[in-house]
Structures are given as C-alpha cells and as structure tokens.
C-alpha cells in the first residue's frame, strides 16, 4: 500500500465534509474520484497531501503513520519535521496550476528538488529536462509561465510534481480550468503516466477519461464513498441510486 486513509473525518465549522471515509491506493494503481461538487473529493485530496488536517482517523504512507486518532478520539499528527518527510511521498497537481510566475519553467522544476530535497543542481536539471521532454515542452524550459497556454502550464505543473519523485501523485480536477481543446493534451500526459505505472489519484469530471484510464473508480457524495469498483462496472452498471442519478447528468 502506498497510502491508507482510515475512518477519515473532517469538518469545517458545523459542516461534516468527510464522514468516516476509508480509502487506500496500491502501488501502480490509478484511482479516479468522481462526484458532484461539495461531495468532499477535493478535501480528501487535501487531507491526503497534508494541506488540511483531519479531525479523526489515520493516514498511513508506505506503512508509516503520519496521523492517528488518540484515546480521546482526536487526530494527532507526527512532528512538523517528520511531516515534511511524509510530504515527499506525495505530489499534488492543482486545478489552477499554481506555478511560480517569477521562476522560469526549468526553475519551477528544480527549485524544490535543490532547496528542499538538497539534490544536486545538475541531477535536478537533468531530471527536469527529461520530464519536460516527456511532457512535450522541452523547448519551453526557459519560458515563464505567463508565456504558456493553460495546457502547457498544467503540463509544467505535472512535471514539477514529478520532479520531486513522489510515490503517488494526486490530481485535483486537473483539466477543469482548461478550454476543451487543451484538456486533451493534459489527459494524454496523465494517460501516459498511467501506462508507466505511476500511482495516481485523479479527481475529475472527465468521465470517458476516468473510465478508460483508471483501475478503480470512486463515487463520492455528501462526504461518503457511495460506490467504488471497476470503472466499467461503476459506469455501465452502477448499483446505487445516487450514482445512477449522477451519471445520468453526464449522459445528456
């Protein structure tokens, strides 16, 4: 198991966003998370990547506990220092890319490897150029984010996450901020990563993509996982009424 999340609870004020969610991902697996907005998909990713702290439950990466629930039922995290170690296991690709605008594409990719992971600049640069090549944007290494199209920016963001050599990569609606014609180029890159057995969790509204690329689909609604399983099964033969109703909207 790369990540195990057990009985995760998360609440914003009075609103329970995650209600006792358990979720794990095996090495090489590609999991798609679908569901209406407000269902807790993004919050789940943000908890997995430590951008949000859970209120209860446990998060285990590579068999090591990052957070667990104490005797009083409150979630306890490891120390700040140890948490940085856990962060290195996971990468996150944002809907809004969040590239660093003042850094060139190359610098976006090497800054954290050099200054956070203390890898050599040479090695980081080589890794970065290989990744940019794979993303089909090696010629943009010295450009600045504002000079790129949305699709190119998102591919840089994917490369930036991969440059940290994470064990698992999370995508939070990676194509939702893109024009339809740019969506394809980003999905193509994710598909290519799936073929290389990169472990990934993708929150998406691109149903055909989820169906074609993932090994498992999770349908979330109201802070719980309503249904999960083989994509073909979930999409063509959903068991739960809520899943059916949700998928029907996409068929129109």
């Amino acid at each position: 198991m790369i990540i195990e999340m057990n009985n995760i609870q998360k609440q914003f004020g009075d609103l329970k966003v995650l209600k006792d969610i358990s979720f794990n991902v095996d090495s090489g697996e590609v999991v798609s998370i679908i569901g209406p907005s407000g269902s807790g998909k993004s919050t789940l990713l943000r908890c997995a990547t430590f951008l949000e702290t859970i209120d209860g439950g446990e998060i285990i990466y590579m068999g090591q506990k990052a957070a667990h629930t104490d005797a009083e039922g409150k979630a306890v995290y490891v120390s700040h220092k140890e948490l940085r170690n856990f962060r290195s296991y996971c990468g996150l690709v944002f809907q809004q890319f969040n590239l660093f605008p003042h850094y060139s594409v190359l610098k976006n990719l090497i800054d954290a490897p050099v200054h956070v992971q203390h890898r050599s600049r040479e090695e980081a640069e080589k890794t970065a150029m290989d990744l940019l090549g794979k993303m089909g944007i090696a010629d943009k290494a010295n450009s600045y984010p504002y000079q790129l199209s949305g699709g190119q920016q998102q591919r840089v963001a994917i490369a930036r996450a991969l440059a940290m050599k994470p064990e698992i990569l999370f995508f939070d609606e990676p194509t939702s901020a893109l024009d339809p014609e740019l969506t394809g180029e980003v999905l193509k890159v994710i598909r290519q990563l799936a073929e290389e057995k990169m472990t990934m969790v993708v929150v998406t509204h691109e149903m055909p993509f989820a169906k074609a690329v993932s090994n498992r689909v999770l349908f979330m609604d109201g802070g719980v996982i309503v249904e999960q399983g083989d994509p073909k099964e979930v999409f063509e033969n959903p068991k739960m009424e809520r899943t059916k109703a949700f998928l029907r909207v996409f068929e129109r």
Partner: peptide, 17 residues
C-alpha cells in the same frame, strides 16, 4: 493567491522558504 502558499507547502518548502 493562496495557491502559491499551497504549492510551496506541498513541495515541502518550510514556511520561511
């Protein structure tokens, strides 16, 4: 934008970095 802080955090930068 808050996303800049979050991107830094996810990449493992310390708050000061």
């Amino acid at each position: 934008h808050i996303g800049q802080h979050e991107a830094g955090e996810v990449l493992g930068y310390t708050k000061a970095q």
